[in-house]
Simulated assay, not measured.
Amino acid sequence: MSKTVEFFFDLGSPASYLAHTQLPDLCRDAGAELVYRPMLLGAVFQATGNASPAMILAKGRYMLRDLARFAERYGVPMRFNPHFPINTLTLMRLLVAVQLHQPERFDDALQALFQAIWVEGIHMGDPTKVAEVLTAAGFDAQALQAQIAEPAVKDALKASTEEAVKRGVFGAPTCFVDGEMFFGQDRLDFVREALRD
């Protein structure tokens, strides 16, 4: 039986974006299933007492450079969003709504939203911009906006976030392979090794 990589992430995390650019190929090459687990990073920070590295001046400066290094290494486009930090509650609920109602289009939604935030630098806290991005990706933005208010969508995101915290997650991205936790997009080599074992 093939292994599974659970990918706990938040769209507002630049490291989640970088991990997302690598994990599909990594999992395909290893014959593993990639399971996307949307979570609300702000709630994880609150529950664990953690905070974004960008909130610490010296660490934030270093992080920007380090993210750029990895984007270059991976050969992927990346622009640090000028509207960071981003309140992702609505965006993460949107993803969960797609996951529940249009699972076959989840990858399309994920790609469109990550692209808008971390490549195009769009202000995704603006509902008009969000609707434009979704419409350009072929989604019914109005229908999705209605779905994010559904109790099932809210509960699913909350449950995934609470599960992440219970399992030891303190930041994004975090991957699990056979119960082993790997934090950070710079730990994908360990994920790859875990899939070989």
Rank of each mutant, 00 (worst) to 15 (best):
I117A: 04
V130A: 00
D140C: 03
L57I: 12
E150A: 11
A58I: 08
R65V: 15
A137Y: 01
P103S: 01
A43Y: 06
A51I: 14
M1W: 11
P77Q: 05
H101C: 10
M55H: 14
L40Q: 12
G121D: 00
L110Y: 13
E72P: 04
Q111G: 13
G49E: 02
F183G: 00
D189E: 13
K3G: 04
D107E: 15
M1K: 13
G60Q: 05
G49Q: 06
G171E: 05
F106R: 10
I56L: 11
Q115C: 08
P82V: 04
Y62S: 09
A58R: 15
P14L: 09
V44M: 00
T90V: 15
V119F: 03
A51E: 14
Q99D: 14
L100Q: 11
F183M: 10
E162K: 08
K59M: 10
V119R: 02
T90G: 13
P127G: 06
F8K: 06
S2N: 15
R187P: 08
R61C: 10
R196H: 12
D66I: 08
V191H: 02
L100C: 07
K129Y: 07
A58D: 14
R28Q: 15
E193K: 14
S52T: 11
K3T: 06
V76N: 04
R28T: 14
D126F: 09
P77S: 07
P77W: 03
L188N: 00
L195N: 06
P38Q: 06
A51W: 14
F80P: 03
Q102R: 15
V98E: 01
I117E: 02
N50C: 09
A97R: 00
R105D: 10
L64F: 10
D155T: 09
L157N: 05
I122Y: 01
G121C: 00
D107C: 08
I117F: 01
E163I: 06
L34R: 02
F80R: 04
